[in-house]
Simulated scan of single mutants.
Amino acid sequence: MGKSIVATSLATAAAAVVGSIASRRGVETWYPTLRKPRYVPPNGVFPVAWTTLYADIAVTSSAAIEKFRTDGDDAKARAFTAALGTNLVLNASWSWLFFKAHKLGPSAVVAGALAVSSADLARRAAAADPKFGAALTPYPLWCSFATLMSTDIWRLNR
C-alpha cells in the first residue's frame, strides 16, 4: 500500500477529529433534548460505527489508489483522491452543521450528499477491484441510514 495508506489514514483521521470537535459538546448537551425516531441507535453505537468506517475508508481507498497506480491509470488514482477529499469534507461538515450550528435541514441535505458521495467512492473503488467496492459498501449504507435519521430528526424538531 505504500505511502497512500499514510495519506488516506491522515485524511480520514483529520475528518474524524474535525467532526468530533464539533460534536463533543452537542452530543452531551443539545442532542439529548431533540425528539428522535425510535430506530435511532444508542449514542454508544456511533463512535464504534464511525471508527470502523473510517478505518475501512482509509484502507480501501489506499488499496484502490495503489491499484490504479499499479495499472498505470494515474488519472483514475487522482480522480479517486479528489472524490475522497470531497467526501471527507462533506463528512466533517455534517457534524458542524448538525451538532455545532444546530441546522437540522441543511445537515439533512449534507447527509444526503455524503450518502451519494460515499456510493460514488464505492463505485470508484469497485472500478479498481470489485472486492474494494464490496469492502467500501458499508459506508454508503451507513450514510444512507444517517440521512434517514437526520431527515426524521429535522422533521420531528421543526
Rank of each mutant, 00 (worst) to 15 (best):
C143Q: 06
V109C: 02
W94Y: 05
S117Y: 12
D56N: 13
A146T: 14
R25C: 03
I21Q: 06
N43A: 14
P47A: 02
W30Y: 11
G72W: 12
A101P: 01
G105C: 03
R69Y: 04
K100F: 13
P42N: 07
T147F: 15
F80P: 00
A75W: 02
A49R: 10
A125T: 01
W30R: 07
R69C: 06
T70H: 03
A108Q: 03
T29A: 12
A64R: 10
I57F: 09
P37F: 07
P130E: 15
K100Y: 14
V40G: 04
K100H: 15
A13T: 07
P140D: 15
S117Q: 10
I153L: 03
L84I: 12
G85V: 12
A101H: 06
K131I: 04
R69N: 11
T52C: 02
L53Y: 09
G72F: 12
S61A: 09
V27K: 13
W50H: 04
V17G: 06
T33S: 07
V89L: 14
D120Q: 10
L84W: 12
R124M: 05
M1L: 14
S117M: 04
P47N: 05
A82Y: 00
T12F: 15
L97Y: 08
A75E: 14
S4C: 07
T8I: 00
P138D: 08
N87H: 13
I57G: 04
Y39K: 12
V48S: 03
A82H: 01
W154F: 11
K36T: 11
V17H: 04
N91G: 11
M149W: 06
T137A: 15
A92M: 00
N87E: 08
C143A: 12
T151Q: 09
V89E: 09
P42C: 02
R123W: 14
P41K: 12
T8W: 03
A11H: 06
A7H: 13
K67M: 13
V110P: 07
F145P: 08
A16T: 12
N91C: 10
P106W: 11
P42E: 06
I21A: 08
T81H: 01
A92I: 01
G72M: 12
F80G: 03
A108T: 02
R69F: 01
A125C: 02
T151H: 06
L34N: 09
V110L: 14
V18D: 11
L148T: 02
T60Y: 03
F46N: 07
R158Y: 00
G19W: 05
T151M: 10
R155E: 00
G19C: 02
T151L: 14
A79G: 10
Y31D: 07
T8V: 01
H102C: 08
S107P: 08
P32V: 02
W96V: 05
A63P: 01
V89A: 15
I65F: 05
A111K: 03
V48F: 04
A15H: 10
L90P: 13
K131N: 13
S61T: 09
S61E: 05
T86Q: 14
T52M: 06
P138N: 04
A49E: 14
R38V: 02
A122P: 01
M149N: 02
R78Q: 10
